[in-house]
Amino acid sequence: QKEELKEKAKEAVKRGNKDKARELLKRAGISEEEAKKIIKKIE
């Protein structure tokens, strides 16, 4: 489940939808700070 949400978040970032990505990562139980780092890494 968590990995699936991370994959979806990756796709969202690639489409330029960072808010959606952050939302998905939060749903995966990832903190706001972690989510920001992950999104930065994907960009």
Rank of each mutant, 00 (worst) to 15 (best):
Q1K: 12
K2M: 14
K2E: 12
K2Q: 12
K2A: 12
E3W: 04
E3D: 09
E3P: 04
E3F: 03
E3S: 08
E4F: 11
E4W: 12
E4Y: 12
E4H: 10
E4R: 12
L5V: 05
L5N: 04
L5M: 08
L5I: 06
L5K: 02
L5T: 03
L5P: 02
K6P: 03
K6R: 11
K6V: 15
E7L: 10
E7D: 08
E7T: 08
E7H: 08
E7A: 11
K8G: 05
K8Y: 05
K8V: 05
K8W: 07
A9T: 04
A9Q: 02
K10F: 09
K10M: 11
K10G: 06
E11F: 00
E11G: 04
E11T: 06
A12C: 10
A12M: 12
A12W: 05
A12Y: 06
V13W: 07
V13G: 03
V13R: 01
V13T: 03
V13M: 10
K14W: 05
K14L: 14
K14Y: 06
R15Q: 14
R15F: 05
R15M: 13
R15T: 10
G16A: 03
G16P: 01
G16H: 05
G16E: 02
N17Y: 08
N17K: 08
N17C: 13
K18W: 10
K18P: 12
K18C: 13
D19L: 06
D19Q: 09
D19H: 07
D19K: 11
D19F: 04
D19V: 08
D19M: 08
K20Q: 12
K20N: 07
K20F: 13
K20R: 09
K20Y: 14
K20D: 11
A21T: 01
A21Y: 05
R22A: 12
R22E: 15
R22M: 15
E23W: 00
L24N: 07
L24P: 01
L24F: 06
L24S: 06
L24R: 05
L24W: 01
L24E: 09
L25V: 03
L25H: 04
K26C: 13
K26N: 12
K26L: 14
K26W: 03
K26S: 13
R27T: 14
R27G: 13
A28K: 00
A28D: 02
A28P: 00
A28L: 08
A28R: 00
G29E: 04
G29M: 02
G29R: 00
G29N: 01
G29T: 00
I30A: 05
I30Q: 02
I30M: 11
S31Y: 03
S31T: 09
S31A: 07
E32V: 06
E32K: 06
E32Y: 07
E33N: 07
E34G: 04
E34Y: 04
E34T: 05
E34I: 06
A35V: 10
A35S: 06
K36N: 15
K36D: 15
K36L: 14
K36F: 07
K36R: 12
K37N: 11
K37I: 13
K37W: 04
K37Y: 05
K37H: 10
I38F: 10
I38R: 00
I38K: 01
I39E: 01
I39P: 00
I39S: 00
I39Y: 01
I39M: 07
K40P: 01
K40M: 12
K40G: 10
K40S: 13
K40Q: 13
K41S: 12
K41W: 13
K41T: 12
K41P: 02
K41Y: 10
I42T: 06
I42D: 01
E43P: 02
E43G: 06
E43H: 05
E43D: 05
